[in-house]
Amino acid sequence: MLYYVQNSVTGMLLLVILLYFFLKQQGRLEKEGRYFLALWATNFALLACELCIDILGISAPTASLALFVAVVTAIFYTLNPTVGVFYFLYIQHVVGKRTKRWFLLLLVTPVLFVAVTSVISIHTGWLFVVNELSEYSRGPYFFLTVISNYLYLVLGPIYLVFNHKQLERKIYSTLLVFPFPVFIAGILQVMFYGLEVLWISLAISLLILFFNVEANQVNRDYLTGLFNRRYFQKVADLAFSKKKGINPQWAFMLDINGFKYINDTFGHAQGDEALMRIARLLEQAVPRHTVVSRYGGDEFALLTPELPKSEIARMLERLQQILTESNAAGECPYMLTLSAGCAPLIREQYPNLDAFLQQLDASMYKAKLESKKADADKHSVIFHICK
């Protein structure tokens, strides 16, 4: 009995600690955070139900509590595949895809099946048996719950593999590995009756998921998915303190021209769409390992790795080309153009990082003035390089 209590209580304490850190870092809870919280709540409820069944239905059965144990067991079995549903919804949101109604219905079908079968099992003993002494044991069709659980654990990683391009490598690998501890623990638990490692393994997986994915969102802009100003300044500060290499890192400050006009004329929803479109175009145009961030409002900031000036010139040409092609495609009712200030990050030329960023900001506004000239409409991006 002590083993069962320790196992479940340890898992629940891990989840309480996780909840503390999760709520501490959250501002307004976005959909992604709500799905994570749903995963947490389901895991906690499963551990609580398991503890109750272990004490009342296995270690210290009491005849007067037979119906109560049977009801708790039915809830426990129903919650088993629910974890898979929230895992699927979570990764779909992280990938950036909307959940269609038919897909959601398909997703919850195994849960509904298990829920109905669990309720019936109180009387038939199909999935589980709780006898008149409130003693719990598995039923003859227990394997149906195993199949429903493993369906999500197998299809989830397959879904991720097909959508891996939308995710950073670190986040992708974390989401991909997430179900495997649960997968292995489930096999062990089925093979060795009495061994309980499944839901504590899920608690550990949630901890890993939180510190690798959810904590990463602190450095992300909620609208565009780019890094935020806080993260940009942190990596710029590190770059500023580094010793000079063969080639410097380059920083860019970019501003959308006429963004107020887009908001006032077409509405704020179109303004948000413009920000997201620019975010995706910047990601396409820049070299690998470039930090792309939303600096604030309609301003963006980039910090490249150490590159020769020729590579920076190619990046500028690529951005010009991509944005021109996007405008030519006519996918939105307005033209998107950018003004950009850029400079090599050479610490010997500036007393501190703030002085460098002020110079970069001034360079961007010089490009902004250039964009208002008559011949500027021939270019999708106007650049100004700090001298």
Rank of each mutant, 00 (worst) to 15 (best):
V154A: 10
F86T: 09
L206I: 08
A329V: 07
I322W: 00
Y193R: 15
A251S: 10
G271P: 00
D237W: 06
F180S: 10
F44Y: 11
L167D: 01
V69W: 03
F68N: 05
C332R: 11
V114C: 03
L112G: 12
A340S: 14
T174A: 15
E299K: 03
E331K: 07
L79K: 06
K378R: 14
R277P: 00
C386T: 15
A355L: 11
F383L: 01
I55V: 15
A236Q: 00
I58P: 03
N131D: 12
L369Y: 09
P181H: 10
T42E: 11
I17F: 14
D221S: 05
G225F: 04
G267H: 03
K309H: 08
F383N: 00
A279I: 04
K309W: 07
Q189E: 14
F211A: 14
K260D: 01
L153C: 14
F180W: 15
L202Y: 12
R98C: 09
R347F: 04
D237P: 01
Y152C: 09
R229V: 06
L207R: 04
A74S: 14
I204E: 06
H164C: 11
L176R: 11
P181S: 09
L209K: 04
F86K: 13
Y87W: 15
L47C: 07
Q26L: 11
E168A: 13
I312T: 13
P81M: 10
V119P: 02
A328W: 02
